[in-house]
Design a protein around this nucleic acid. Structure first.
Lengths: 223, 223
DNA sequence: ACCTGAACACCGTTCAAGT
DNA sequence: ACCTGAACACCGTTCAAGT
């Protein structure tokens, strides 16, 4: 009998290969294996296409990474923050949302930090933060600087937390966090670093979210 | 006439290839070409040895990167901070030193963020920060959390700033910063992002260091 | 317009061998 | 102990060609 069409491996368009599907596949890979599991070739393999097929949708790998990061920022619930009558709790809500969204995909964090926050979704989120702060009645210049301050705080926190999260693993509980912090102290002699040894217990005893909100409150108190 | 020893390309030990020299070469490459200019092979080429020669000194590239980051933290002037009679100005001094040290080598920043701050030099610097904060008379638990807060702030600031610094270029002045911020807004319609457009001018009008110290002061006020 | 195959100049790392 | 040469399984990207 004559061969019918070979399953699917000839040139030409395919439905199913879209920008959206590529970003979903990329996020899946990063979630499973961390930032270094993301390559043009691994994404292509995940989608069952030739590596260079992706260049129809993204000009370079850097563009793909930027789009992946911005896509994540597009998932923030900006309306929820804008709808909060109290400006300060609205800011806390937005900051916590950003933190949770990024830590749900810790492998993306180093990619995002390297790429910067210049995508369209990032700009919109920044605009919302400025709106919320302006409701607080700060002097105009302070609003701009406070926005920058808040962004750096959230990013710094997320960066440090994400660096501790091994790819593909479940979020560690408090006990695991404590163990990890102690491990990070490594072979260092606790007698030489008495305050560090003590602080590791204190910080680890709070879960990351409580620690995050404590710092956020201190920061808002200073404004 | 008979050939004397070929210049130097045979197996066997060489003086000049040391951990220190490797880190210096690596830093030179990162300074010149950014984080992606750092490869095991590029460092080896810079030193005139075979790529695998480096594996005598570092088990993996990740180990080399971690050592590079920690080496930078070892350049902090901890004694200057400890010698400052006023605890608050000592903290500001240490934070500014850290920021300046990292931004002097912006290409290292993404590497450092990914690797975390778990090296011996990082631990010692953290210990000093805790010491300074404890002089401030905070409750013991707050000292630990304030230390974490300060670290995240400095890191976040540096990460955002470093993402804007092109590798190999001179530190941009205020005019260049303003132009860059406007460019980052890209094709975005300023009418849709009115507050962002206004804030870009405000933030860029301050140099990064003044902005950094403003945030640091707000933060310390909240403690 | 959208995809494939083949190729280019790279990677990090390992292994056997030389000094 | 310290280095080289050669090889392995990878990269991102480009180019010509097929539908």
């Amino acid at each position: 009998m004559t061969e019918s069409v070979p399953p699917r491996s000839r040139p030409g368009p395919r439905r199913g290969l879209t920008e959206r599907a590529i970003l979903d596949a990329a996020l899946r890979l990063v979630d499973a294996g961390g930032a270094e599991a993301l390559s043009v070739r691994s994404v292509a393999a995940e989608m069952g296409v030739a590596p260079n097929a992706l260049y129809t949708y993204f000009r370079t790998k850097a563009d793909l990474v930027a789009a992946l990061g911005d896509d994540l920022l597009g998932r923030l619930d900006l309306d929820a923050a804008l709808g909060d009558a109290d400006w300060r709790s609205a800011v806390v809500r937005l900051a916590a949302d950003l933190r949770a969204t990024l830590l749900a995909h810790p492998g993306v964090v180093p990619l995002l930090l390297h790429a910067g926050f210049a995508g369209p979704r990032a700009l919109v989120a920044g605009e919302v933060l400025l709106e919320l702060l302006s409701r607080g009645g700060l002097p105009a210049d302070d609003t701009a600087r406070a926005s920058y301050l808040l962004q750096t705080y959230v990013l710094g926190t997320v960066a440090l937390d994400a660096a501790e999260l091994p790819p593909g693993a479940a979020r560690p509980d408090d006990a695991a966090r404590t163990a990890e912090r102690r491990r990070a102290l490594g072979g260092a002699d606790p007698a030489l670093l008495p305050r560090t040894a003590a602080a590791a217990d204190v910080v680890a005893a709070y879960n990351g979210d409580a620690q995050f909100r404590w710092g956020l409150d201190r920061l808002l108190d200073g404004l």
